[in-house]
Amino acid sequence: MTDSPTPSLELENTTDIADDQLPLEQLRKMFAHHYAALHLGPAVELSVTFVDEPTIEELHVRWLDLPGPTDVMSFPMDELRAGTAEEPVEDGILGDIVICPSVAAAQAEGHSTDDEILLLATHGLLHLLGHDHYEPAERSEMFQLQEQLLSSFLGRPAPTSATAGQ
C-alpha cells in the first residue's frame, strides 16, 4: 500500500517513560496505513494518550466498573465507521485511545513491547470504528481485521496477545 497523508493524530505521553522509548513515529506511520486501508481521510481526528497504571485503573473503574489496570481503552466521539473506496470518510472525530505502556510490556509475550503497543493501538482504533468482541462472530471479525491491518503494515505476521480485548 502506498503512503497516505498523515492523519490528524495527536499523540500524548503522560507517563514517566521517555518519548524515545515509545514507538511514536511508528504509530504515526501505522495510523496513516490504517486510515488508507479503512478509507478514512486525513482530516479524521484521533487522539492517543499513554498513561500510567493508576490512571488507566481509574478510567477502567469509572467507565467500565472493572477493577485493576487494563492495557487499552477507547472512547468514541462521532461514532464513525470505516469508509469505502467509493465513499471515504472525509472528516469527523474518531475519539480517544488510552494505552498503558507498562501493562503492554507486562503482557507482551513472544514479541516486543513496541509490537504490543501497535497491536493495542490497532485494537483501540477498531473499537472506535464500532467493532467489538463480546459475541463470537463479532470477535472473529474484529480480530481478523486487526490481524490483517497489522500484518499488512508490518510486512510480517502480526503479533497476538492473549489479553488484548479481555
Rank of each mutant, 00 (worst) to 15 (best):
D3F: 10
S4Q: 07
P5E: 09
P7E: 07
L9C: 02
L11A: 03
E12Y: 05
E12F: 06
T14L: 15
T15W: 08
D16Q: 14
D16R: 14
I17C: 01
A18R: 15
D20S: 12
Q21H: 15
L24A: 02
L24T: 01
E25I: 06
Q26V: 13
R28L: 02
R28C: 02
R28Q: 09
M30C: 06
F31K: 01
F31D: 01
A32W: 13
Y35K: 07
A36M: 14
A37Q: 12
L38E: 09
H39Y: 12
L40N: 01
G41Q: 09
A43D: 15
V44I: 11
L46I: 13
S47M: 02
S47D: 10
S47Q: 06
T49M: 15
F50D: 03
V51Q: 01
V51T: 05
I56Y: 15
I56C: 11
E57K: 13
V61C: 11
V61H: 11
R62T: 12
R62F: 15
W63E: 14
W63Y: 13
L64M: 12
L64P: 03
L64R: 14
D65W: 10
D65R: 10
L66E: 15
P67R: 06
G68I: 12
V72R: 04
V72H: 00
M73Y: 02
F75C: 06
P76K: 07
M77W: 09
E79D: 15
A85H: 02
P88E: 05
P88Q: 05
D91W: 11
G92W: 07
I93Q: 08
I93C: 03
L94D: 06
V98P: 09
I99R: 00
P101K: 00
S102Y: 09
Q107T: 11
E109S: 03
T113I: 02
D114A: 11
D114N: 11
D115C: 02
E116K: 11
I117S: 09
I117G: 08
A121F: 05
T122K: 04
H127S: 03
H131C: 02
H133F: 00
A137S: 05
E138H: 08
E138D: 10
S140H: 06
E141H: 12
M142F: 01
L145S: 04
L145W: 07
L145Y: 09
L145D: 07
Q146N: 12
Q148C: 08
L149T: 12
L150P: 01
L150E: 00
S151H: 06
S151F: 04
S152H: 11
L154W: 08
P157T: 15
A158K: 11
S161P: 04
A164P: 01
G165L: 05
Q166H: 14
Q166S: 12
Q166T: 13
